[in-house]
């Protein structure tokens, strides 16, 4: 089928999945070992981590994988904006943001792609 079966498949998984991900986590443990919880450096590190997460969000919204790409960009941006507004309006509720965002995405996708 995919050519990634048996022991070979798991070896590939370790080489291309596990090691490239966990080398960064391990580096984080080694680098973070000496940093004090109250230090200013940590404020910067957290800002960088938050910005990278923001980058992941924007990248999936603008350049989506798989079947999400079939939903027009305007609908994706409208859905994520509505979800965010709902989150702000409903006591900063993550659940409200998810429900509204997903509903707008599916409704928009249904009307525009049928």
């Amino acid at each position: 089928m995919s050519g990634y079966e048996g022991l070979w498949g798991y070896l590939v998984l370790v080489m291309v999945g596990f090691l490239p991900s966990d080398v960064w986590r391990l580096l984080g443990v080694l680098v973070g070992r000496g940093i004090d919880e109250e230090s200013e450096l940590l404020v910067w590190v957290r800002a960088v981590a938050t910005a990278v997460l923001a980058g992941v969000i924007a990248k999936i919204a603008f350049f989506p994988p798989g079947s999400l790409a079939a939903i027009p960009l305007s609908v994706r941006l409208m859905a994520i904006s509505c979800g965010f507004v709902a989150f702000l309006l409903v006591r900063r509720s993550v659940f409200a943001g998810l429900v509204v965002g997903e509903t707008v995405l599916m409704a928009g996708g249904f009307w525009l792609t049928r």
């Binding site: 939903i71 965010f84 998810l98």
Partner: peptide, 20 residues
């Protein structure tokens, strides 16, 4: 449409939980 909605969970949840 449903698998698209599943893939949309990642950016939507990352955004609101990071904002929270």
């Amino acid at each position: 449409l449903l698998t698209a909605a599943m893939l949309f969970l990642t950016p939507m949840s990352f955004l609101v939980s990071t904002a929270r």
